[in-house]
Design a protein around this nucleic acid. Structure first.
Length: 586
RNA sequence: GCAGGUGUGAUCUAGCUGGUUAGGAUUAAGGCCUUCCAAGCCUUCUGCUCGGGUUCAAAUCCCGACACCUGCACCA
């Protein structure tokens, strides 16, 4: 039924995009100053749409999947991104030709000249370029200095200290840094997921394609922590038989239809946890109205994988501009927790119960401080420490011989410790748990792109309005946004059929009723009834309620359905429930 | 970032070989009319992307900036 077709249809998408701007979904930011590339405002309807999509997302991740929701700052100190690797890996090294001023990535110029050039630092790259007499590949000119271009926005915290900070390029990092608190909050149960909805910032070199490539964008991310030693993931049962279109990286040209269960069995997808999240992602995309036959999962090539990822599958949706990545599902292994653990010195680990408790016998040194104290006085603590570092078998030999131990203290000479003050004790330790660094699967959703995907697939053009009778005064195509009612910005239009006989009073009362049920409404008395239906169709409002003269007699109204233009009549008091049921699909 | 193209009310567009108050359509607002799908009539709001230059005179020609589009490069 959707008139969206394969391939590019400029006229079609132009119609959609002018509608979106005209009706207030989104537009370029800072327009009165000429605009800034990569920034878009969500207008009144776009904001509602965004919010509704996020609500559906939360219903899946927070309600169904029991993810823990958090909300962390967008600005983080430099150290955070030093540890995460973004400071180093999230930047490109550029060099510019001094003659023709073309910019190149320094590491690309050294490919085949030096081994793994993308691991070199700025100085090393510069050295390598000089040593190998690399010239501008375009004009043969001399190359300038290697500059670092980091894709993160830099800022400072505070007025005096000038503490360097960055706007987060993804919301994930705060979740990793908060791991221990979250783990405790979850009462130390594994596995568990943490979700965050917020904004990400990337200073893209050249943002294009309108809202598809932004410098500030909405993202919804989940981090699912699990024990890599546990094989299988029981909840995955639900998605075992779900079929997906997959483009695996061992054969990037081909698309295969495969069930998620099969894909895990034959090793195409690396784990059930990852496959499970592909299943969740798919059901989410379907729920917000993206048709299944316009979706596919594409596995990243090893070369395009992010610095943290071990395996990554993108959900791509076919739009007028081609296949667009809207969700990335990455296996980040233990990378991030390890990095932050190293960077901060804090242990970021979980505990797993051993199949059975393990007894560990060990011999340890015990000292008699009553004896040592009076002898060594101020040195005692250092002596005890040095004793503890001695080899047990060494101590054992002296003990058997009954000879005093000679203990060396740096700068304080050798000390004679009476062997009677040192005892060897057998200690038995029972451990029932061991520590491990959880692995992470991260589904990361680009909400702005999902909005575009949803809108393009909901957009329909018709030659004329559905029930049109008159032929004169034709005005262009009739546009309908067939959004799923769940995500429609406005749920109900409410109209008096004519502006007299008190019909508008009844209509306004109905608006109040609907509001009490949390439904967004749009009261409209201007223009012909057909024009008002058209306005609602254009912004994707699924239901229109009309008060006519019969309403005065028997308290009934008509409710019109956007996609069919059909109407039914029902008592006023049943309207809110009817609408709610239709929205929830019951 | 480079190269090319484009830039006229909210939207779509005429004018662009310089010369009256920049024209139209849609939308929007107010009213008349109207018992169900953008009807009609009246009234009204909003515009030459910005900054310089050439000229008696610039939407129009030139330069620069910004934005958008296409290609290249880049893309977690």
């Amino acid at each position: 039924m959707s008139s969206f077709k394969l391939g590019k249809e400029p006229a079609m998408t132009e119609g959609l995009y002018s509608l979106l701007k005209r009706r207030g979904f989104f537009w370029p930011s800072y327009g009165i100053y000429g605009g800034v590339a990569g920034f878009y405002d969500l207008g009144p309807l776009g904001s509602l749409l965004c919010d509704n999509i996020e609500t559906v997302w939360k219903n899946i991740f927070i309600v169904s999947e029991d993810y823990l929701l958090v909300d962390c700052p967008s600005i983080a100190p430099e150290i955070a991104f030093k540890s995460s690797g973004h400071l180093e890996k999230f930047s490109d090294h550029l060099t510019r030709c001094l003659n023709c001023s073309t910019a190149f990535r320094a590491d690309h110029l050294l490919e085949g000249v030096v081994e793994i050039p993308d691991t070199l630092s700025r100085n090393e790259l510069e050295g390598a370029l000089r040593e190998n007499d690399i010239e501008c590949p375009v004009c043969g000119g001399k190359l300038g200095e290697v500059e670092e271009f980091n894709l993160m926005f830099r800022t400072t915290i505070g007025s005096g200290g000038e503490k360097t900070a960055y706007l987060r390029p993804e919301t994930a990092q705060s979740i990793f840094m908060d791991f221990s608190l979250l783990y405790r909050t979850n009462r130390e149960r594994m596995p568990f997921g943490v979700a965050q909805i917020g904004k990400g910032f990337r200073n893209e070199i050249s943002p294009r394609q309108g809202i598809l490539r932004l410098r500030e964008f909405h993202m919804a991310e989940g981090e699912f922590f699990f024990d890599p030693a546990v094989h299988g993931f029981p909840p995955f049962e639900r998605f075992k038989d779900t079929t997906v279109r997959a483009v695996p990286n061992n054969d990037p040209g081909s698309t295969v239809e495969v069930t998620l269960g099969k894909a895990v069995e034959n090793g195409m997808i690396c784990s059930e946890v990852l496959a499970h999240h592909m299943g969740i992602t798919m059901s989410f995309a379907l729920k917000i109205g993206i048709p299944k036959d316009r979706m596919r999962f594409r596995q990243h090539l090893a070369s395009e994988m992010a610095h943290y990822a071990r395996d990554c599958w993108d959900l791509e949706v076919e739009l007028s501009s081609g296949w667009i990545e809207v969700v990335g599902i990455a296996d980040r292994s233990a990378y991030d927790l390890n990095q932050h653990s190293k960077g901060s010195g804090e242990e970021l680990a979980a505990r797993r119960k051993l199949p059975e408790p393990v007894c560990q016998r060990s011999t340890q040194i015990e000292v008699d401080l009553k004896v040592l104290g009076p002898i060594f006085r101020g040195k005692t603590a250092r002596i005890v420490k040095a004793l503890g570092e001695l080899d047990i078998s060494h101590v054992k030999r002296y003990k058997e011989k009954g000879e005093p131990l000679m203990v060396e203290l740096p700068g304080e000479g050798t000390n004679e410790v009476p062997i009677d003050a040192v005892n060897l004790v057998e200690i038995e330790e029972r451990t029932s748990h061991e520590k491990f660094i959880p692995h992470v699967v991260e589904p990361s959703f680009g909400i702005d792109r999902l909005m575009v995907a949803v809108l393009e697939h909901a957009y329909t053009e018709m030659e004329s309005s559905p029930l049109r009778e008159k032929e004169e005064g034709e005005v262009g195509p009739y546009r309908v946004l067939r959004l799923d009612p769940k995500i429609s910005p406005i749920k109900c239009g409410v109209f008096p059929l004519v502006n007299k006989d008190g019909l508008s009073d009844i209509a306004r009362r109905i608006v109040q009723d609907l509001k009490r049920f949390g439904l967004t409404t749009y009261y409209d008395h201007s223009g012909s009834i057909g024009r008002r239906y058209a306005r609602m169709d254009e912004i994707g409002t699924p239901f229109s309620i009309t008060v006519d003269h019969k309403s005065i007699e028997d308290d009934s109204v008509t409710i019109r359905f956007r996609d069919t233009a059909e109407q039914i009549r029902l008592p006023v008091r049943d309207v809110p429930t009817k609408v709610l049921n239709m929205i929830n699909g019951t």
